[in-house]
Simulated assay, not measured.
Amino acid sequence: MAQPNLSKIRACLFDMDGLLIDSEDLYTICTNTVLHEHGRPDLPWSIKAQLQGRPGPQAQEIFHAWAQLPITREEFYSRQTELQKEHFPKAQPLPGVLELLQRLKENGIHMALATSSHAGNFKLKSAHLPHLFSHFPDQHRILGDDKRIAPGRGKPCPDIWLLALETLNSSLIQRGETPILPSECLVFEDSVPGVESGRRAGMQVIWCPHPELLLEYKGREEEVLAGLTGEHKEGEVSAGKPGEIGDGWARLVESLERFPLIEYGIGRRKE
C-alpha cells in the first residue's frame, strides 16, 4: 500500500509498449523472425530487458552488439520495418487497461502518454485503437522522436515524464488551476529503465512488467522499484536522483486488472 506521507495523486502518466498494449510481444516476434532468417537464436530476455523503454538509437546499439547479424544494419531495419508494418496493427490492450483509464477519467485524474516509440510506429500501433488512445489528447502525447527531448535524454533519464507533466500543467495554468507537482504524479511502466526514469523525475511509480522480465529480475525487485539498477550511466549530474530501497514511492503489480486506485487517494471506498 502507498505510504501515508505520499502526496495524493492528481495525474497518471503512462508508458505504452508492454504496459497499455501487447506490442512488446509483437516486437519479439518481428525481431526473432529476422534472427531466425540468419541462423541466430531467439532474443533472450537478458538482452530484451536492456532494450525496453529506451530510445531507438540506444536500443539499437545494445541489440546489434549482441546479435552480430551477417547483414548490414540498413538491411536489418528494412526487413524489421516490413514485419512491424504487418504485426503492429494487431496490437491489443492489455488486461485491465481500458477499465483503469475509464475509472481515472471518471475521477477527474489528468492523464498523459510518454512513450519511446517514434511517430511512425505509434501510428501503426494506435490507429486501430481509438477507444484506448482517445484518453490521451494529442498535446498530452510525448513520443520518442519529440524534438523537445534532447538527443541521449530518453529513458532512463527523467526528461520524457517531466515534459509530459509540463503539457498537463500548461493546460491547467491556462484555466487558472493549480499546477501539478511531480510528487502528485503516478507513472505506469513495464520496463526497468522506465521505472528508473520515473523515480528520477521525482514521481511515484507502478511497475507492471512482462512475466519474463519479472523472472529476469527475480530477487532484485526492490532495486528496480528504487531505480537503483544502474540503467542510467551518462549525465548523472543532470539526471535527477533515484529513490531508496523500501521508500514506498514505487510498487510492483503483475496486472492492471482491478488496480487499487483508492490506495492512491483516487475514488471512494465502498461502504
Rank of each mutant, 00 (worst) to 15 (best):
L214I: 03
G227F: 06
L100W: 09
D15C: 11
K270V: 11
D15L: 14
C157E: 08
R175A: 14
I173N: 00
S170V: 02
L100S: 08
G108N: 15
H64A: 09
E99S: 09
S46T: 13
H36Y: 06
W249G: 07
A201N: 03
S238N: 03
E236T: 09
L100I: 07
K155T: 02
G18P: 00
W249A: 13
G230N: 07
G39Q: 05
E184I: 09
K85N: 07
K125H: 02
Q50A: 09
H118T: 12
L163Y: 08
R251T: 15
E177K: 13
R258W: 02
L19W: 05
E236P: 01
P89I: 12
L43A: 02
L124Y: 05
C185Q: 03
T167A: 06
Q174Y: 00
E177S: 09
K241D: 04
D190C: 13
P130T: 10
T72L: 01
I160T: 14
K233S: 04
L101H: 11
Q68W: 01
L13S: 08
I142T: 11
E263S: 14
G235K: 05
E184K: 04
G108A: 07
E82Q: 11
V195Q: 12
I206A: 10
L213R: 07
P260V: 11
P44A: 13
G152D: 03
D15M: 10
C12H: 06
G18I: 10
